[in-house]
Amino acid sequence: MRRALRGYRAYVRAAVAIRLQYRITIFASAAVTLLWILLVTRVWSAAYQGRDTVAGLSRESTVVYLTLASLQAIVINSPLMWIMAARVRSGEVVFDISRPLGYPGQMLALQAGTSVTQIAVTLLVVPLAGLIGGLSGPAGLAAGLLYPVALLLGWMLNGLLSLLIGLTAFWTVENTGIAVLYRFVAAFLAGASVPLVFFPAPLRAVADALPFRYIVYQPAAIYIGQVNGPAARDGFVVAAGWIVLLSGLTALVWRQAYRRTVVHGG
């Protein structure tokens, strides 16, 4: 156990070091996020047309939600899926599989390292994001305390889902299409650009039934006080349930993927 932890920690450190080699990419993606915040908050503010509240959400709360949600959605843009596919394609996956650590764990550690870098950059641009969009303190002490917990659950869910999508590369080799589809669907159903309360009922039911909402909507809604008390608690239970379910599924899919591994070239 201690042995394995040392290995996973090393992976996280390496992933951070690798991301830091590509600073321009990191700052470019931060710039894209800020631009997105600018656009989405302006469009939604205009949509309020002078009204104070729509669907129980004030204009100010919506702007704060959208600013937070855009920042949080950065984690969905992890390169993990491409990295996995690229290594299957080039045959370098041979080294990942021959390590004394589990493959899914290694990939999650890579994802963690990437996220550490993304979070560090995100924290740097938070003041700018507040200026461009709009930020305020959490809705209350409870909201402030529950927010990081919700973020952590969301991160784990996104990590597991990305890992599952990445594993499709063992069957298809090339998974760009699936990965693009995942990002699009995940970001939308997570409520990254439209708060879920604005969804029409049937779409809302779909979003509620799927795990994506816990990646972006749940934490941001807790922060602005839209979700609190029993609703927040129930949300945590369901998110934890999804994590357990997806962990089991990942283990199952990985076992199948390993048995059908083909190392390409040489």
Binding site: A14, Y22, G91, V94, G266
Partner: peptide
């Protein structure tokens, strides 16, 4: 087993390309 074997594939590298 991984701890007891060393592997070198001449056509590819286990080293981290960017580091």
């Amino acid at each position: 087993l991984a701890r007891r074997i060393g592997v070198v594939f001449g056509q590819r590298s286990q080293l981290w390309w960017d580091l």
